[in-house]
Amino acid sequence: MISIQGLSKLYKTKHQNVQAVDDVSLNIEQGEIFGVIGYSGAGKSTFIRLINRLEEPTGGHINIQGTDITNLPINQLRKRRQKMGMIFQHFNLLWSRTVFDNIAFPLEIAGISKSERQEKVQELIDLVGLKGREKSYPSELSGGQKQRVGIARALANDPDVLLCDEATSALDPETTDDILDLLVSINEKLNLTIIMITHEMHVIQKVCHRVAVMDQGKVVEHGDVLDVFVKPQSKTAKRFVQQLNPLEHKQDSLKRFITEDESTEVIKLHFIGNDAKRALISEVVKTFDVEVNILQGSISPTQEGAYGTLYVELNGNESVIAETLKFIEASGVEVEVIRDVK
């Protein structure tokens, strides 16, 4: 649905050149929520502004539903932009207009009749949960309500792509979750493609189907959210995953729980999808003559299913432990033997 090939943006200044986006190629499917994550200066906000040509690319192509927008003349680009809604970090509302009039504004620009505008705006107000606030001004709204206005306004022209540039970073955690739930609901109801730009791994975890990790203008890793969470390949992705799973970098804390005995083995288990709900430890205890000591663990949900990490100590005969490990691996759970924690 969206094909991005060799996309680049070079800023030239008097003293230096800055490669904000460097040869990025991605395919984003119709109806998916695609996340782009990176730390400050990674190029992610420039990347999303290139998609609707709020920034002009230095090189590369962006093809949306068969149209190469990088080659569109400005009059055709204006019409194409009407089908690309955008949500901003700081809302960008018109402070002198009411909620109703803010949402109606893009419809006015598009030349939609007053009666059609009224019907469409009311439909959007109901969709984003702002019924009763039609006559309120932005100064009278909470941050979450302002962003709901921004979402409704972005949907006014029935876009096929919704671009979200740090849409929740100005909100508190509870309000963030409410806005993310709303975006998931909109994605499902409208089959709307959503591109989420964020520096928060929680956002990726909660709503995205796939993710691209950016660093210094490049995409250093991309794939299904579960794959990136469970097996991050790049240093940047590993740092983000550690934000949500502090166990990944606190193995030293295991030492105090481990039995000083040569007949023990410490293992790390990765559970994915339905395996995260399986009573595997109970099965092991019933099947094998081993003692199992659970050291620490965590489980996290994503759009594509849950994933979890569990550290356990196995105590028993060496050959029995070997059979136990084979049994666990055969069950579909990934096993990593930890030897450097003692």
Rank of each mutant, 00 (worst) to 15 (best):
I4P: 02
K14M: 07
Q19P: 02
V24N: 05
V24I: 15
G38H: 10
S40G: 08
A42K: 08
K44A: 05
L50I: 11
R53E: 09
G60M: 08
I69L: 01
T70I: 04
L72Y: 02
R81K: 08
G85T: 07
N102R: 10
P106C: 06
E108N: 11
G111N: 11
E119H: 12
V121R: 06
D126I: 00
L130C: 04
K131P: 00
S136T: 03
S139A: 14
K146F: 09
I151L: 05
R153M: 00
P159T: 08
L162Y: 13
D178F: 09
D178Q: 14
I179S: 13
L190T: 02
I204H: 04
I204P: 06
C208S: 02
R210H: 13
A212N: 06
K218V: 08
K218W: 06
D224I: 00
K231R: 14
S234K: 04
A237N: 08
R239V: 09
F240I: 09
Q242S: 15
Q243E: 15
H249S: 13
D252Q: 08
I258F: 09
T264S: 13
G273T: 03
V285N: 06
F288L: 05
V292Q: 08
I294Q: 14
T302Q: 04
L310V: 15
E313C: 08
R339W: 00
D340C: 00
V341I: 15
K342C: 00
